[in-house]
Design a protein around this nucleic acid. Structure first.
Length: 512
RNA sequence: GGUCCCAUCGUCUAGCUUGGUCCAGGACGGCACCCUCUCAAGGUGCAGACACGGGUUCAAAUCCCGUUGGGACCA
């Protein structure tokens, strides 16, 4: 393996890996981090996640990254991030950042990289020329027009559409005209791939093209650069989407021609939209960071994704540690899976329910600030956000919901739901609210134990049922028809704000 | 068009390697009831699938063949 070539070609402009690591802990210091002791368990397993930076990181890509990461951690191996940015027209630095941010958010850390293929172009050329010198590749001067014409001809005759090998035996050494370098593919026998997920797959060499490895413009093609990188980076297991299955025999042939060890392959089934069609913008959120914005916890997304195509008996919830311990290709499904937003949401709710108040308050804060909450302002709930969170975490399915429901306790005046006011803040409700406020003024201490008897007394005096009293009170206190229990709400607001809000609500009611 | 992959409740899946314990288990979602100061949560229960057709076998969701359907890649 030629490691020196790798390190020499790493971009000097890209921030060093350690910097990203530090940043991650500052920004996302969550309680889900697991630190793996790599001493003594290092194996030579090396895997990579190799996205093209042509857009945001989508959930399919994240799952591929996740399975690579899990396998690496499980085996005590090395996880490498490689950016396949050779498509210069479509690749952007923004996209690279989006990928990096997405991986950070979910906690998938890499041990090497990010490498960038654009830093390695010379290397691909060099390797391609070596192949030519050894007679494994040849110059081809067929023009795209000629190729297209012959392809059509073949199609018309019902023959297989592949390069007809015109330049194969020409033995061109230094063509004057623009020339591409073609790989001399084996034409007989077959390649058998022992896929870790799909099992044995056989490909007849007869259908293999003499594929171009170096274009006339001097750029290496996808299949070639991937093989060079995987070989030189010492990748032992290629774990990727099964849209690459058909590339595998070509790549295996290249590995062999280059006399590199052929890695193991594991082809993950695709992720589909809820309607079973290919995942696209149509399906709403496909970007990983969009899930962050929608108030999902990273561990919920990761848990959802790991169960999409992998299982461990009937278990639904897995901590990161758990997944690492239990992950195995034996239980990876061979068929594609559809995304189910409902189940993701359920998992998110489960993780929110179990979340530490302190951490929930931390991740909730940005959502509140977006809605105008000032963490240093005068309007604060009793006990801080941490005290509010426990009452909302068992109801909220996302942090967005949680933030919305938290707003009544962190803003002043309360935002009143007019429909709710019309329905509940009526002249019929006024006497009980007035009486309750009167009695509340003298209560001390202000706690559920002391307030509850007052409520009972009001109920008795007014001949009301709890529901008839609690709803108007709830609307008065929160501006909404739903909230945590009213005693909890009062505790969060404190005595003063509770009284204020009841007074304000009473003022809305026309006295009659 | 060629090659390759896939196929269990609406969805994610267990079971398939080593056929019987499966008139197919769990989860999400749905429905009903219970709990209840609202909304949730929670509890209990119900409905819901082995794509189809052959074959092998005493016995097939499980093995073999075919069909159909879906998908990927090449161009």
């Amino acid at each position: 393996m030629d490691r020196s070539v790798i390190s020499a070609s790493v971009s000097p402009t890209w921030p060093p890996i350690t910097k990203w690591r530090e940043k991650r802990h500052e920004e996302y210091g969550s309680n889900q981090r697991v630190h793996f002791d790599r001493r003594g368990s290092m194996t030579d397993v090396r895997v990579r996640f190799a996205p093209s930076p042509t857009g945001f990181l989508h959930v399919g890509g994240l799952r591929t990254a996740l399975f690579n990461w899990l396998f690496a951690r499980r085996e005590g191996g090395t996880f490498i991030l490689r950016i396949e940015d050779t498509d210069r027209d479509r690749s952007t630095d923004d996209a690279i950042e989006a990928i990096v941010n997405g991986l950070h958010w979910t906690g998938l850390d890499w041990d090497e990289g990010p490498y960038r293929q654009t830093d390695r172009l010379a290397l691909y050329r060099q390797k391609a020329m070596e192949l030519r010198e050894r007679g494994k590749a040849y110059w081809c001067v067929c023009t795209p027009q000629e190729l297209e014409a012959r392809r059509k001809e073949a199609q018309a005759k019902g023959e297989p559409i592949k390069y007809d090998g015109r330049c194969r035996e020409r033995g061109l050494t230094a063509p004057a005209e623009p020339a591409a370098l073609r790989f001399r593919s084996p034409q007989e026998g077959q390649t058998v791939v022992d896929d870790l997920i799909k099992g044995t797959i056989a490909f007849d060499h007869a259908v293999l093209d003499d594929l171009i490895i170096l274009r006339a413009n001097g750029y290496a093609t996808y299949n070639f650069s991937v093989v060079i990188d995987d070989a030189l980076m010492g990748i032992t297991h290629v774990i990727r989407g099964d849209d690459h299955v058909n590339n595998t025999p070509r790549q295996v042939a290249l590995f062999k021609a280059l006399e590199y060890r052929v890695p193991h392959f594991a082809h993950l089934p695709m992720i589909l939209g809820a309607d079973k069609s290919r995942l696209s913008k149509r399906h709403g959120a496909t970007s990983v960071l969009a899930y962050q914005d929608m108030g999902y916890l990273p561990e919920a997304l990761v848990n959802y994704l790991v169960r999409l195509g992998w299982s461990h008996g009937d278990q639904e919830m897995f901590s990161i540690q758990d997944m690492v311990e239990k992950f195995s290709f034996d239980h990876v499904q061979a068929s594609a899976a559809a995304c189910d937003p409902e189940k993701l949401q359920w998992l998110n709710a489960e993780y929110i329910k179990r979340g530490e108040p302190r951490r929930l308050a931390d991740v909730l804060r940005p959502f509140l600030e977006k809605r105008g909450y000032d963490p240093r302002g005068p309007v604060q709930p009793q006990g801080g956000l941490e005290a509010v969170v426990p009452h909302l975490r068992e109801r909220a399915k996302t942090l967005v919901e949680m933030a919305e429901w938290t707003m009544p306790y962190v803003t002043e005046p309360v935002a009143m739901d007019e429909a709710a006011a019309v329905k509940f803040l009526t002249t019929a409700a006024a006497p009980s609210l007035t009486k309750f406020a009167e009695r509340l003024k003298t209560v001390n201490p202000f706690s559920k134990e002391t307030i509850e008897p007052l409520v009972q007394a009001v109920l008795n005096d007014e001949h009301l049922k709890m529901g008839a009293f609690a709803q108007p009170l709830r609307v008065a206190l929160t501006g909404k028809t739903f909230s945590p229990g009213i005693y909890e709400v009062m505790a969060i607001l404190g005595k003063e704000r509770t009284l204020d809000r009841i007074t304000q609500a009473l003022q809305r009611i026309p006295s009659s």
